[in-house]
Design a protein around this nucleic acid. Structure first.
Lengths: 220, 220
DNA sequence: CATGAAATGAGAGTAACTCTCAAAAGGTAG
DNA sequence: CTACCTTTTGAGAGTTACTCTCATTTCATG
């Protein structure tokens, strides 16, 4: 642990219930963030492919075995986060009368605000790697589709559909696909756009489809 | 059934322009299909993970090096096909007045009809692997998103949007995500459904969004 | 402090790739 | 058919992500 925990500042809300369950658990969290921080640093220095797990282990001061004990794949070290369950919880908290899309918009905005203020650098790096490293992009899509499965349960409940219906599954995955594309677009355009704007435009497209003619009254 | 070309029957239309450019090219095609057929056979016998590239090479009677020369990754052996450019071409052939969704529906139907009569077994195996092997699923999404990039150009042209606009990209990827989900749904339900029905229902969802209430008048 | 459980490290092993270079086969001109 | 050039192939060594096992260390608890 050469430097401080700059990458993971104090959270404004708890991610799990138990605050300080014991020395063992605290150490595990420390190891986890140490591995992640080491990875981020090395990737920034050398790039993703040039960074080996051995190097990561060395800098994080753990053994390579331990790295794989904490993260199933190298890609997971970069892109795992803990926002998903949080997002789901927030979503279920929204009033049932609220139009579904409004709920989604609200929750996504909130998630972005939190993420962008807390882990701005990490989020950009992640989006950047998504563009550049196919393996990371793949894993991201995979991970998002897992999120999607949970999301589809929430959507099914809200819209009164069967959870396993094709319609819900397709709708959710199309949502996920669209959301994934935001990050790529954002990173490819050097993070110039406001992520919130991109999100709003994306949700509008998914809600209403493509405008048939180029829209001159848009935000851009 | 080990040897003949049962896996790749005579095509009802040409995939590339040059028919018989020479012995060299013909041999390459033969090697390519030999590797693919060997892979399919081995995967059916032992499963995907248990099948090594060495075994594939042995059965295809080539060296492991050659396998990697023809396919960049093991997953690509399973899921590479040549339908994409075909599909794009068909799409551009549709009359410009035709509503966009109708064009897409028509072309996808055609692709499914062709694929399902020519490579029915292979397509099922592929869908099955998509469900079971994460690496294959990831690679499929990746490959579909490449297709998506081409698709988005066609969509952009047809709808009069900029090719690089966020809207087109998001729309395309949401389409891709939805389409990918069909295969998963189909395979998870043991191929009981008619793929064409699933496709129609999927396109309807993408076009009109989720029905707010479970629809009793549907096809099911 | 002692005892049990969990986490770690060390090391061997697998398999998907990558790179290099020499041999073989296809294509072409005399 | 022979000679020559180009493309393709095979052999082999090397890298790295990832797995498994087992002994050792570290925390928790009575």
């Amino acid at each position: 642990m050469p430097d401080n925990d700059s990458m993971t500042p104090a959270r404004s809300f708890p991610l799990s219930d138990a605050p300080q369950p014991g020395l063992r658990e605290r150490k595990k969290i420390k190891t986890r963030t140490a591995i992640r921080d080491a990875t981020y640093a090395l990737v920034r220095e050398q790039g993703y492919d040039a960074t080996t797990v051995e190097q990561i282990a060395e800098r994080a001061e753990v053994s390579p075995s331990t790295v794989f004990r904490y993260f199933p794949t190298k890609e997971d070290i970069v892109l795992t986060d803990e926002y998903d369950p949080l997002l789901l919880a927030e979503l279920r908290k929204r009033p049932a009368e609220e139009p579904w899309m409004d709920s989604l918009r609200y929750v996504m905005h909130k998630a972005i605000d939190v993420g962008l203020t807390e882990d701005a650098e990490a989020i950009r790096l992640r989006a950047h790697l998504m563009v550049q490293v196919p393996a990371v992009r793949s894993r991201m899509l995979e991970s998002m589709s897992v999120t999607g499965r949970m999301l589809s349960e929430a959507i099914a409940d809200r819209t009164g559909q069967d959870r396993e219906s094709l319609e819900v599954r397709v709708y959710t995955m199309s949502l996920i696909g669209g959301l994934a594309e935001i990050s790529l677009y954002w990173a490819e355009n050097d993070f110039r756009d406001d992520f919130r704007d991109l999100l709003d435009r994306t949700l509008t497209v998914i809600e209403h489809g493509l405008p048939t003619k180029p829209d001159a009254s848009g935000t851009e």
